[in-house]
Design a protein around this nucleic acid. Structure first.
Length: 481
RNA sequence: GGCGAGAUAGCAAAAUGGUUAUGCAGCGGAUUGCAAAUCCGCCUAUCCCAGUUCGAUUCUGGGUCUCGCCUCCA
């Protein structure tokens, strides 16, 4: 039985879908004005893992991950670049898809864009106005009247009083309450035509939070199962989504429930500080993928629990790389075709128990390592199949191990390693597999002639280029260090 | 200032009121012509102070420190 940590309850709860066997899941995706960084990678990978596990559990999942393609930052960036909003967002949506695909993230079932749902947003704003929760302010914006919504603060655990006491809340004259937020921003003279939509409140564009409420309700219904996103969205974004979506539903004077389970993933940190644009301590996904395999990055993300902080550094990625290699090495020695998981087998049961406990991927991975140990010592095909199949549940271990071990590294930085006292530059790619095989043949001949000096010379020559030779009963194979 | 999360071995990271987490790194051994890989063994832990308990890393209270949210943020 799956248990999920529900931010709304601040506790793990048994997961019960609204409609038995079906799950509606919505995750806040990107605002597309720049390349995705590792923080975005974590959301993508974590909820991809959740999506996969729900499906593996036999549930019929509808996964929606939105794209915010209209917002202040987008408008600003487009103006800076002297390009249209559409050109800008199209570019970064394509880039995001490249990054997500590389990380083995499955496409969601729906990927709605804010600009395609403006009518739904207007409909919701009208409903809020009708329910007495929205008002047109003197400056022309339509605002949400926070104090009129009874449950405001229930997700983030903040009271209106606490929030007002905060030093950093903007005070705008046109708002009835400083905490009121904008549903519809009135159009400004200087803004381009492509950011202006007609509405009953005049020309304008949507506020930040309304798009998720409108798209979620449209695609998953007014009441759905899971809503996820980064922990920083808890307040105000998700709090406001609740206010909007529940505020718009009013039956017999009572507001309906919007989402049953709220999930929030932890941040990616650099030197213990949150990776963020303002601090300038972020690494884009594509930047990191120049140095590390995408699967290593995915492994790195999933080896920590999704709610824990995740500290990024090259050292940690190197460590993740070594760990993942060892799993692949086990599969290299016992090659298997694709296979389904045997869920009755003890490892799979422990894996399932871990995943069912709020998606405990570190525990699930520990099972993978124990399985790999069994593969190494027993050479069991069944164990190897199980290892690959369980890895597949996490979106890992699906590459061909030998091919993977011989693929040239896409390392751009100078990277030296020391093996056997030889300093190897693993960026050197001067040896083709053909030339390597020729050298292996020459070395085999030298070995047969008991000319070990020559055999060792060849081995060290290759080692200096980051190529490791491995002798076995069935001959010599090679891999990149 | 308000609210919240967390402190586990060299590093990373789970779990647990008593019984080996796991991985990387390191050390010793087996194996190997030498290696690599693998196997076996070893090595380092539960922030501090009280309390509850037969027993606490785990529960309670206090403290210290770190981080996050309260403003755009995944």
């Amino acid at each position: 039985m799956l248990r999920i940590y529900n931010t709304l309850a601040r506790d793990k709860q048994e997961f019960t879908p609204i409609v038995p066997g079906k799950v509606g899941m919505y995750v806040c995706g990107m605002t597309v004005y720049d390349y995705c960084h590792l923080g975005h990678a974590r959301v993508l990978v974590v909820f991809d893992m959740v999506y996969r596990w729900l499906k593996a559990s036999g549930l019929d999942v509808t996964y929606v991950r939105n794209i915010t393609d209209i917002d202040d930052k987008i408008i600003k960036r487009a103006a800076e670049n002297g390009e249209s909003i559409h050109a800008l967002t199209a570019r970064f949506i394509a880039a995001m898809h490249e990054d997500a695909d590389a990380l083995g993230v499955q496409r969601p079932d729906h990927e709605p864009r804010a600009t395609q749902y403006v009518p739904e947003m207007l409909e919701m704003i009208a409903q809020l106005e009708q329910n007495g929760l929205a008002y047109k302010a003197t400056d022309g914006d339509v605002n949400y009247a926070v104090r009129k919504f009874p449950g405001y603060g229930k997700l983030s655990g903040k009271s209106l009083e606490d929030l007002r006491a905060g030093e950093r809340v903007d005070v705008t004259d046109s708002k009835h309450d400083p905490l009121d937020f904008v549903l519809w921003k009135h159009a400004k003279e200087q803004e381009a035509a492509e950011v202006k939509w007609d509405s009953p409140w005049g020309k304008g564009r949507p506020g930040w939070h309304i798009e998720c409420s409108a798209m979620g309700s449209r695609l998953l219904g007014q009441h759905f199962d899971i809503h996820g996103g980064g922990a920083d969205l808890q307040f105000p974004h998700h709090e406001n989504e609740i206010a909007q979506s529940e505020g718009a539903q009013l039956v017999d004077g009572k507001h309906g429930q919007f989402v049953n389970y709220w999930m929030h993933n932890g941040f990616v940190n650099v030197d213990k500080e949150k990776m963020s644009k303002s601090l300038g301590n972020f690494f884009t996904i594509r930047e990191v993928l120049k140095k590390y395999d995408a699967e290593v990055v995915r492994f790195f993300i999933l080896r920590a629990h999704y709610r824990s902080p995740l500290n990024y550094s090259d050292m940690h990625l190197d460590d993740a790389n070594q760990s993942l290699n060892s799993l692949y090495t086990a599969l290299k020695h016992v090659p298997v075709e694709d296979a389904a998981v045997d869920w009755n087998e003890p490892h799979a049961q422990r894996f399932k128990a871990a995943m069912d406990d709020d998606f405990n991927t570190p525990e699930a991975m520990a099972v993978l390592f124990e399985l790999s140990k069994q593969v190494n010592s027993s050479k069991s095909i069944e164990a190897a199949r199980q290892l690959k199949a369980l890895g597949g549940v996490l979106g890992l271990l699906q590459e061909e191990p030998v091919e993977r071990s011989q693929r040239p590294r896409n390392i751009v930085m100078e990277a030296n390693i020391v093996l056997e006292g030889v300093t190897a530059n693993i960026a050197v790619a001067t040896y083709t597999s053909e030339s390597i095989n020729n050298l292996i043949d020459a070395r085999t001949a030298a070995k047969q002639a008991k000319n070990y000096a020559e055999a060792d010379r060849i081995r060290k020559e290759l080692l200096a280029a980051g190529i490791v030779l491995e002798d076995s009963a069935s001959g010599t194979t090679w891999r990149r260090a």
